Every structure is written in structure tokens, then in C-alpha cells.
Deep mutational scan, measured.
Amino acid sequence: MIVFVRFNSSHGFPVEVDSDTSIFQLKEVVAKRQGVPADQLRVIFAGKELRNDWTVQNCDLDQQSIVHIVQRPWRKGQEMNATGGDDPRNAAGGCEREPQSLTRVDLSSSVLPGDSVGLAVILHTDSRKDSPPAGSPAGRSIYNSFYVYCKGPCQRVQPGKLRVQCSTCRQATLTLTQGPSCWDDVLIPNRMSGECQSPHCPGTSAEFFFKCGAHPTSDKETSVALHLIATNSRNITCITCTDVRSPVLVFQCNSRHVICLDCFHLYCVTRLNDRQFVHDPQLGYSLPCVAGCPNSLIKELHHFRILGEEQYNRYQQYGAEECVLQMGGVLCPRPGCGAGLLPEPDQRKVTCEGGNGLGCGFAFCRECKEAYHEGECSAVFEASGTTTQAYRVDERAAEQARWEAASKETIKKTTKPCPRCHVPVEKNGGCMHMKCPQPQCRLEWCWNCGCEWNRVCMGDHWFDV
């Protein structure tokens, strides 16, 4: 396979590697080409510095992935760790964990309700045991953590790749202090920090972006993250068709209702045909949960890209028209025109101005929308079919299609509260000796007794199943 190397943020060049090629071997190839010592090179990928003893497969490097290699003399205490030698983080029983690669970060837990604080980093599902597709590297999971809308060759929703760059020099040479644990960490600028490894760059702020994971991409090709779309790892039924499908869209209502993408497309087109989208002054033209839940309008309007190009163009047109109407304007009634106009409040005669090729020149009556006339309008008909009709959803289907309910059931079956801080902690095999993952707590306690870890627990039921 081919990976592209950008040395000291210059133009990239291809390097041929195998899945079992080590990072140090990659350094040696680059060092020979650039005429520099291999031990002064640092390989940066997806916000993480890659260790010498890791392989291309370990690092989730795919065909035509772009890695950054910078030349920086080692500072005291760094060289041993980078070589894969006596790194205290690798000691058996050590409590410190390697910062998780962005290629394996899962933010789907952050669609849980606000009262489930902490689960994004504490609760991990076991539903990723799908067998890898044919042709994928051994052991590589097909679980997708992110979804994007690819405006490039795909023109559809695709699995996405999370990447990070330095907000100062805009190069992907920043190593994160810690990985993101929720969508806010990724979507809110300057929320996460790190250290830029580019020479002479003092940058410390992280800037995240997404790429389409279905095809090789260049540095400049980015895609918009659709953070309401998630892999259906909890096997929730769709609120409309009641099938279990994946991926799904999880509405931001209190129940976190789930809808499959085909039904979401149908829901949007139906509402669009009836012009029953909601115009929100802050958000724009949007839709609420299909069950009509309060405070559930979709905030990231790129989710409506699921409509496809033709329907999305209609959505944008109707949204612009609705904006004009909300501002007190009118639409030209001549067939084939429909231009938005903003006449004076007491102006009865409205002319669709033909300047700049935008208007048709038609003069019409503001009251009856017919060709302009003197005197009273002959008839004014009330528009028919403008009443909002509820999208029919079966109550039982709505009850079963809740992301929140599956989460709470998982928590109930696989977790116990920490005796000190009461945060839910998952036990997935292993011994009875637990350690609270909350940095402010870190209590060592017994899963069996529910009390602080002691010699009695150690001698009596340390390794009970």
C-alpha cells in the first residue's frame, strides 16, 4: 500500500509500505531520502505521535493516508518512550493509558441525555464484534464512529474520518494533550489543546475536521460531520418502519427517538411537499423529531443533505422563500418566477423588478396576487391545505425507538455506581478489583462488596467470576 509523507509540512511524497511495516522502518526510509538522522524524526498522525514499535496496521493507516513527519531533536526523557523501550505506560498493571487514536474515538455516547454525564468515556458498548469485510486488514473493525456528507465523488452519507490540525499553522502536526470525549470537544473551536510539532510553531489549540472515509482524499478535501447519525450498535428499532437498520439518525429530543435514513428521507420529502418545515429565527429551515417532541429541531442543517441534490435544492429554495415571508415580504405569483420581494408595508401595487435578471417585471396586487387592478379585489380565496398535519407515529413504536432507553438498560445490566462519587462504572470481565475512572475520584473498590478495596476482598473473592 501507499502512504503519503509530508516532511516538515512540505509537499508530500509517496512511500510504499506493508501492513506489518513498523513506524521506525518508515522513519528509516524517510531519513534516507531526506539525509537526516532517523532518531530525530517524529511521525504524527490523527493528533498522535506514533511509536517506533507500532506497525502501519496498528495505527489504522489506510491506503493513501497522509502522515506528517517532522525533524525535531529529542528532548530529555522522550527518546526512550518513542523507541518502544522502557515506557512506564506499558508496564503490566499500570494505570496510565495511551491517548486514544482519533481513528478509534467514539462519540456516540454523547447523544445520551444530559443526566448521563461521564458515560462518553466510561461506558463502552460490546456491539462492535462484526466481522471485518472481505479485503480489510485482519482485526480491523467495521464499526463506524462518525458519518459525514461527502460532496465529492460519493454525493451521499458516508463513514467519516476525524482529523485534527494546529489552529495556528493549519498543519496536521499537532499532538493532542488528551483525546475528545464528546461532540462539544470536536465542534467547539479551541476547546481542546495540544502541542504543535512543526518547527518554530508555538500553536497549542486544536482544530478538528472530518474527511470522507470511503475514498482517498487530499489535504484540502473536508466534509461536514453529521453528528446525529450513528451506527445502530444498540439495535434500536426505527420509529417509523420498526426495522432494525444501521446507520440511524438520533433526534435530540428527551427520548432520543431513532429513525433509519430511508424513513428520514421520506419524512423530509413529505414535509417538504406540504411546505411544513419549521422556520426558526436562529436555526433556519428545519424539522423536529418525527414524533413531534418539543425542543427537538435539527440544529445542523447539513443533515438535510440526505435528501439528495434535487430535493436539497428545493429545500434551500423553500427556506429562502419562507425567510422572505417571515420578513413581511411577498413572492411573485407569476408561474416560473417566484422571486422574493420586500415592498413597503402599505404598498398595494407590487412590481417584480426586472433588474439584474432576477425579476420578471410582472405587476400584481398584494392582496389577491392577481395582475394589478384598481378598486376592490374580486375574490380572495383562503389558501387550502395549509394546516399542519401531524406525522403519524405509532405510540408503541415510539416507545421502542428510544436510544436513551437502550442506554439505561445497558447501564443497569453492566454497571454499578462507584461507592464514593456514584458514577456508573462498567465491568466487562476481569477481577473484582475496580478503579473509578473519574479523575477527581480514582477510588479503588470491590465490585462484589461495593466497598473500598481491602485485604478481605483480596483474599476471599479477588478473582471470582
Rank of each mutant, 00 (worst) to 15 (best):
V269G: 03
K408P: 10
K369P: 02
V330R: 04
R140L: 09
K412W: 10
M458H: 12
E376V: 09
K349V: 07
Y312L: 04
G338L: 05
W453S: 02
R104K: 13
V250M: 09
K369G: 11
L112M: 14
R104W: 07
D60T: 05
T237K: 15
G319A: 09
L443T: 13
N254G: 10
A214Y: 07
K369V: 04
T125H: 12
I44L: 07
V15T: 02
G328A: 04
A363S: 14
A225Q: 05
V250F: 02
S127N: 13
P333T: 03
Q100K: 12
T175C: 13
V30C: 06
Y372V: 08
L61S: 01
P37W: 04
V456G: 15
S19V: 07
F7Q: 02
V456S: 15
F24N: 07
G359C: 10
K161F: 09
K211F: 12
D115Q: 13
P247Q: 06
V164D: 03
K416Q: 09
L187R: 08
C368H: 02
A134R: 11
P294D: 13
P159E: 06
K299S: 11
V456Q: 15
A38P: 10
I142H: 14
A383C: 11
N313S: 10
T240E: 06
R396M: 11
E195I: 12
G85Q: 11
H302D: 15
T351W: 05
V164Q: 06
H200I: 07
E98L: 09
G94T: 13
S116G: 13
E96M: 12
P73I: 06
F45L: 08
N8A: 02
Y143L: 14
A383F: 13
S65M: 04
H302F: 08
P133G: 11
H303S: 04
I69C: 11
Y372I: 07
Q252W: 03
Q178S: 13
L228Q: 13
C196E: 01
P247F: 03
S116I: 04
A206F: 03
P133S: 11
K27G: 01
S167H: 07
V423C: 14
R314H: 03
S110A: 12
D184F: 04
N313R: 12
L41K: 00
D126Q: 09
L331Y: 03
P73V: 08
E49K: 02
C260N: 01
Q326M: 10
I239K: 00
T242P: 02
A406M: 14
C323Y: 13
H124L: 05
S407W: 07
Q178M: 07
F209C: 07
A320S: 12
E322Q: 07
C150F: 01
R51I: 05
D126A: 09
G114Y: 10
V164A: 10
G114S: 13
H227T: 15
S131V: 12
G35A: 07
C323N: 15
C169G: 01
C352V: 02
E79V: 10
T217Q: 11
H302N: 15
V111Y: 12
S19E: 10
A206R: 00
R170Q: 10
G152R: 11
V278Q: 11
D464V: 15
D243A: 13
C263Q: 00
R234C: 06
V117P: 13
F381R: 08
Q316Y: 08
L226T: 03
W447G: 03
L341C: 12
C59E: 00
E353K: 09
C451M: 15
E322C: 04
L123D: 15
C268H: 01
C441A: 00
N8T: 01
P288S: 10
L266E: 04
A371C: 08
W54F: 06
L61N: 00
F304M: 05
Q78Y: 14
P294Y: 06
R104E: 11
V465G: 15
Q158Y: 03
L112E: 14
Y285K: 00
V70L: 05
T168N: 09
K48G: 02
C421D: 02
R89G: 14
S205T: 15
H461I: 01
W445T: 03
G84L: 12
N190C: 08
G35L: 05
D62L: 08
G338M: 05
H302G: 10
I411R: 10
P419R: 04
V56F: 05
H433C: 05
A405H: 10
S193M: 09
W453H: 00
R6L: 06
C212L: 01
E370F: 05
P88Q: 10
C241G: 01
P88D: 13
D126H: 08
T168S: 10
S384H: 10
L341T: 10
G135C: 11
G160W: 00
K413D: 15
N8G: 04
C337V: 03
S218C: 11
R256V: 01
S101V: 09
Y149I: 04
D464R: 15
M192N: 03
R97S: 12
Q155E: 09
C253R: 00
C150D: 00
L123Q: 15
C436K: 01
F7N: 03
A363R: 09
F146G: 02
S205N: 12
G118C: 05
R420H: 15
R170D: 05
G194M: 06
Q34F: 13
S131T: 12
C263M: 00
C293W: 00
M434F: 04
A206M: 03
H257M: 01
E399K: 09
I411F: 10
W54E: 11
L119V: 11
G114M: 08
L301S: 08
E322R: 04
G77L: 14
C323W: 08
V70S: 02
I142T: 11
S110I: 06
R163I: 15
N52K: 02
R191F: 05
L297T: 08
C196I: 00
N90V: 14
Q171H: 07
